[in-house]
């Protein structure tokens, strides 16, 4: 219910029947929910007065939009040229192996999501990944494994604490 109320604000921000707001609205919806739920896309379509198919068409065209919720840790692997030259493909493969998911997927326990981005813009510390908003640069497959373990450990710890509370 809370979520419903808050998302109302998004719709109030934009004028009705103005199709040029579509992308901005979808961005706001995604920021709010973490992804684009079907119901919200229908609501956006009604608000702007365009077919849902067009909303869906736009949403699937752009890389930014997601249709599934994200994991707790979103790992963005930079696939820019500088990172590629310094071995980011190996980093991605190792990550995929370790977590058992492919780029663009979320692990079943909703802990980790792997995404690739064209360029994070931190070329000086290539190859680089960003876990949520924390950057980790100059990675090797070895240091990546260590890093992952530390996140997995932190996660377990926070969960244990949570249970105690």
């Amino acid at each position: 219910m809370q979520v419903q109320e808050n998302s109302q604000q998004i719709y109030e921000k934009y004028p009705r029947k103005d199709a040029s707001c579509l992308i901005d609205m979808l961005q706001d919806v995604q920021e709010h929910f973490g992804y684009l739920p079907d119901a919200e896309m229908q609501r956006v379509a009604r608000h702007i007065d365009i077919p849902v198919s067009r909303v869906y068409g736009v949403a699937t065209f752009y890389n930014q939009f997601r249709f599934q919720p994200l994991g707790k840790y979103v790992i963005r692997v930079c696939r820019g040229t500088a990172c590629h030259v310094k071995g980011s493909l190996d980093i991605l493969r190792t990550l995929e192996n370790e977590l058992g998911i492919k780029a663009g997927q979320t692990s079943k326990d909703l802990r980790f999501t792997i995404e690739t981005v064209a360029c994070i813009g931190a070329c000086s510390i290539a190859p680089v990944i960003a876990v949520n908003d924390e950057f980790h640069g100059g990675l090797t497959t070895k240091s990546l494994q260590k890093l992952l373990k530390s996140y997995q450990k932190n996660d377990r710890q926070s969960e244990v604490q949570h249970e105690h509370v």
């Binding site: 199709a19 901005d24 752009y62």
Partner: peptide, 25 residues
């Protein structure tokens, strides 16, 4: 400011305008 939504082709000027108009770029 209009925020792009992550499509490389939107760097092309006519695609960019489509995107600002709220369409597929």
């Amino acid at each position: 400011i209009k925020k792009g939504a992550g499509a490389f082709v939107c760097g092309e000027e006519t695609a960019l305008m489509q995107s600002i108009e709220g369409r597929r770029g």
